[in-house]
């Protein structure tokens, strides 16, 4: 019996956004990354072509992280003391983007300075040809203090600047506007908050082709479903034609998964949790896969093995089914 397959026809589309700029485009990147452009729910190849695959970014820090799981430090080895070497290693591990995330303090325990941030960004740009996301430590005043000079020093690179929140979006957006960068707009797991921030940002004159949104997520076991559902709702709203939700989504499953006890702690946990390293990687991978299924365009990961697995899954999800 030939079954008639209902196909959703959506009026809206996700915007297409390009990260990074090559020399011809005013930057120094050797490759750029384009995400978005979907006109159907994730991986529904039978309804419309999926123009751009989701991509994997690897998170690196400006100095040796003091609160990371020892498993991660072991996996990366000495490069964690040198962001440029780390960026290179991340590229070799399969990163399609690098997310450079600043800590509040430098390696000596002193608060980071603008100079330190600029130097680090320059070193990382020199070490890798991949597009870069540059994130402050997430404290609005510090973020402003470092991201403005970074934006100026890397003018034209089409960096993604973050975290751009309701508290500091004016400064970050102005820096992006003046220096040809993008921003990552973060709100707390709420469709309306996300829309509001996107409106505020676009009111400042930044074209929405330069805005990614980060709806915030939680790890498996620690709030993932809220993130999952908010992303599904945002993507449905985008396809239904709501312009302020039509932005590609970036989420940080690596950050969330590696802060859970399951990943951080190897001893004194129940036997039913199993092998520490395998569990931790599964935690990060499952968090990422679930978010990809709900519409993530960029997933930021931490462990090289997770990167390998998640990229393999994206490959499979992007394979156009023969029957479609």
């Amino acid at each position: 019996m030939p079954v008639e397959i209902p196909k959703d026809k959506w009026p809206g589309a996700v915007r297409t956004i390009t990260l990074g700029a090559t020399e011809a485009e005013g930057g120094t990147r050797t490759s750029v990354v384009t995400v978005g452009g979907q006109t159907a729910l994730p991986f529904m190849h039978f309804e419309s072509e999926v123009p751009h695959r989701p991509v994997v970014a690897i998170e690196i820090k400006d100095s040796r992280p003091d609160d990371w799981s020892p498993l991660l430090l072991e996996a990366w080895g000495d490069v964690v003391d040198d962001p440029a070497a780390w960026a290179k290693a991340a590229e070799e591990a399969g990163a399609e983007l690098i997310e450079l995330m600043f800590s509040l303090n430098d390696a000596d325990g002193n608060p980071i300075t603008a100079d330190h941030a600029v130097e680090t960004v320059k070193a990382v740009l020199g070490a890798t040809g991949l597009p870069l996301l540059v994130f402050g430590p997430g404290q609005a005043d510090v973020d402003n203090e470092i991201l403005v000079p970074v934006a100026e020093a890397a003018k034209g690179e089409r960096l993604v600047l973050g975290i751009c929140e309701d508290k500091n979006y004016r400064t970050i957006v102005a820096a992006a506007l003046a220096n040809d960068h993008l921003v990552s707009a973060r709100t707390a797991m709420d469709v309306n908050l996300a829309k509001q921030l996107n409106i505020l940002i676009s009111d400042m004159g930044l074209p929405l082709e330069r805005v990614l949104m980060d709806p915030t997520t939680g790890a498996l076991g620690y709030g993932i479903v809220y993130g999952f559902s908010v992303m599904e709702r945002l993507r449905l709203a985008a396809l239904q034609g709501d312009a302020m939700t039509q932005l590609p989504m970036v989420v940080t499953p690596g950050f969330e998964a590696w802060k859970t006890k399951e990943s951080k702690v190897g001893e004194g946990v129940p036997d039913s949790w199993g092998d520490w390293e395998a569990r931790s990687i599964n935690w990060e991978v499952l968090t990422a896969i679930t978010l990809l299924e709900s519409g993530a365009d960029i997933v930021v990961l931490r462990h090289p093995e997770s990167v390998r697995r998640v990229k393999a899954a994206i490959e499979e999800l992007m394979a156009v089914p023969e029957l479609a």
Binding site: G274, D275, A278, R279, L286, I289
Partner: peptide
Amino acid sequence: SMLAAQAIAKYVGFIVLDTFAPEQIYPL
């Protein structure tokens, strides 16, 4: 485990696994 995760998130009612290992089954 990735296939199983998709099955859980996307509508499957019964899931048959070959691997039984706590570090694999706990996250699922």
